[in-house]
Amino acid sequence: MWQRIVSSEGGRSALMISPPFLYALLLLAFPLAAIFLFSFWTQDFMTVDTTFTLDNYREIATQPIYGTLLKRSLYVSACVTAVTVLLAFPVAYYVSFHVRPERKSLWLFLITIPFWTSYLIRVFLWKVILGFNGVINTGLINIGLIEEPLTFILYNVNAVIITLAHAFAPFAILPIFVALEKIDRSLLEAAQDLGENRVMTFFRVTLPLAMPGVVAAVLIVFIPTIGDYVTPELMGGAGGKLIANMIQTQFLALNNAPLGAALAIVAMVCVSAIALVFVLLNRRWLRGRS
């Protein structure tokens, strides 16, 4: 039996994919299934009632605070994604088209340097930069542009967006760079030979061919930012908390894991729906241009 499995092509393929499949099943599927199951239970302090109920979802639908936090989370994620991708594209474009091939690896090395430091350290550094007596306020006061420190750049949604955009910048630059590297340069030369200027060549040739990288960057940034709770906790203040902070509060502070699980499921469904719509719209747009 074992020799028959090993000798067949299908058996060898099954043996090759079985370790990563089991790994994904144990570390992804089972935890998600447990969270989904928990969302239909209730908890009274340390006692978990496993009776099937929709009370958690009813509470989410009826209590305005959950809808407010979810809308704020989607808004912050959308802003972070837009800012990050718009700033990442010029960097990736410059490295791909204007940096000599032997120096591209150095530039990529410099782009990934932020990964060398802890995420918490980077957040605290932005806290120092944006603080009441931080680098920005001190510098603006010293050069005479302002008389009092700016208060709208810390402990609000703006600080969360700035910090997350910086933290996820490398995740946007790298996929866009890979997509730009795959573009055949002869296509750009052909477009210019046919009378297109540089701007129209970019919009009609370069950008459409780079869209897979842009889509990947959008999804890579948008999906994890909506689940980030460290940055809103440290930088957002009372008005910058997101849905992830409420999930963390339900699980740890309020000891209400079922409601936290239901909030997590609702957030995942919203993110999945938005990501799917974005991918479908992008695919239709690419078909329309082809």
Rank of each mutant, 00 (worst) to 15 (best):
D184P: 10
D184W: 10
D184M: 13
D184T: 14
R185Y: 08
R185N: 13
S186M: 12
S186G: 14
S186V: 15
L188E: 15
E189Y: 11
E189A: 11
A191I: 04
A191N: 08
A191V: 03
A191Y: 11
A191R: 10
A191P: 09
Q192K: 12
Q192T: 14
Q192S: 12
D193E: 04
D193K: 07
L194I: 04
L194A: 03
G195V: 03
R198G: 15
R198C: 15
V199I: 14
V199K: 09
M200R: 15
M200N: 13
M200T: 14
M200Q: 14
M200Y: 14
T201H: 08
T201D: 06
F202Y: 07
F202M: 07
F203T: 04
F203M: 09
F203R: 08
R204H: 07
V205N: 04
V205S: 02
L207M: 07
L207N: 09
L207K: 06
L207V: 01
P208W: 04
L209F: 03
L209H: 02
M211R: 02
M211E: 05
M211L: 04
M211G: 05
P212Q: 00
P212H: 00
G213P: 00
V214G: 01
V215F: 01
A216N: 04
A216V: 02
A217K: 02
A217N: 03
A217P: 02
A217S: 02
V218T: 02
V218D: 01
L219I: 12
L219C: 07
L219S: 05
I220W: 09
I220E: 06
I220N: 07
V221S: 05
V221R: 04
F222R: 03
I223C: 10
I223M: 11
P224T: 10
T225G: 12
I226D: 07
I226M: 13
I226T: 12
I226W: 06
G227V: 06
G227I: 04
G227S: 12
D228I: 05
Y229K: 10
Y229Q: 06
Y229S: 11
T231V: 06
T231R: 03
T231D: 07
P232S: 05
E233P: 15
